[in-house]
Simulated scan of single mutants.
Amino acid sequence: MSRDLIAAALDCAARGWHVFPITPRGKYPLRGFTAWEQHATTDPDVIARFWERRPCNIGVACGPSHLVVIDLDQPKPSEHPPADHANRGLATGEDVFRNLCERHGQPYPADTFTVTTRRGGTHLYFTAPPGITLGNTSGDKGNGLGPLIDTRGRGGYVVGPGSFVALPDGTGTYTITNPAPPAPLPAWLAERLATPPTAAPSSTRPRLGDLDHLDHARLSRYGRAALTGEVERVAGAPVGGRNRALNLAAWKLGKLIARNVLPREVVEHALTEAAKTANAHGDPNSPREIAAVIAAGIIAGMRG
């Protein structure tokens, strides 16, 4: 099994995809790899050495790999499609996606790298469109594609082919079913995923432009984009993952502080406001805890 996983990880790397270890028989980043997007690599020597020591599953970091992956899921036993979908026979993620393609007058994009997942779902791999940064979607939330469909781009990962997952909701291997190179993401899908939701954004979710303490003239376009992305990720962090998201954001932005791309006081204030927004759901983290996590992350990032 270990040799198979090494070969599978090296095959991903040979395709130019950045990989990192996820838990054996599981699907979450290995402890110590919370900054998995930074740890992900295509270096065959690093990959071989690590996987020889431990037969981990394979995570494919979509952002650095320039991938967008569409995940067409099978419903879990407790999941039932919305009534309007059930009435049209749309029971799986593939059903919903094929229907979406039909409604847009587009063919189902089958001629691309494809993986069958452990529960019989499908991962369709595409190359990310140039000049557009696509993040992640879940179901029909925001600008998602529909129930039982997730997408993974920057800031997201998928379980790579060759991985074996054994969890209560399903057991199986992620298997390549179409080895063709990833096709470019169809333009209509790129446009759909890049279009902001029509609903007004929540007033509790801060955007950089809403933080009136910032002197915008002090920020480069790159610095502003980096800060905006991290602010929104921290603000949307789930209960149980807030400190990890906050620490990672502070670490990444600390690197930009060290390069004089961003002022430290701007980063501290923006991340504090984002953490306060995340507190709106569930038990809040204390101001002291928030400040400590931000400070530790920034210091670590500035040290490199």
Rank of each mutant, 00 (worst) to 15 (best):
H281E: 14
G26R: 09
L90R: 13
R15W: 09
A296K: 10
G282K: 02
S286C: 05
L246P: 02
G209K: 01
P107A: 07
P64S: 02
E289Y: 01
V165I: 11
D150Y: 08
V68W: 03
K276I: 11
P184R: 05
S203M: 09
L72F: 10
L90K: 05
K141A: 11
P81D: 12
G236L: 14
C62A: 13
M1A: 12
G139C: 06
I6P: 02
E289D: 12
A180V: 09
D4P: 08
T41M: 01
I176T: 15
D73Q: 03
A270I: 11
Y108A: 07
G32W: 05
Y174K: 07
T23P: 00
R3T: 15
W251K: 06
T34L: 13
T42N: 00
P168R: 06
V96D: 01
A187G: 13
T173R: 14
R88Q: 15
P29F: 07
K255H: 08
V165A: 11
W17G: 00
A245K: 01
S220W: 07
R25K: 14
M1S: 13
R244D: 14
T92L: 07
G240H: 12
P55E: 07
L134C: 09
A199L: 11
D4L: 13
H39R: 15
A110S: 15
N279H: 06
R25P: 02
A61R: 00
W36K: 01
N243G: 05
R288S: 08
A237K: 00
G301Y: 11
M1W: 08
I47R: 00
R88Y: 07
L189T: 04
R242S: 06
I149M: 02
F126V: 04
P107R: 01
E268H: 09
H104R: 14
K76M: 15
C56N: 12
V96A: 03
A245Y: 09
V261W: 01
V267K: 00
G146V: 07
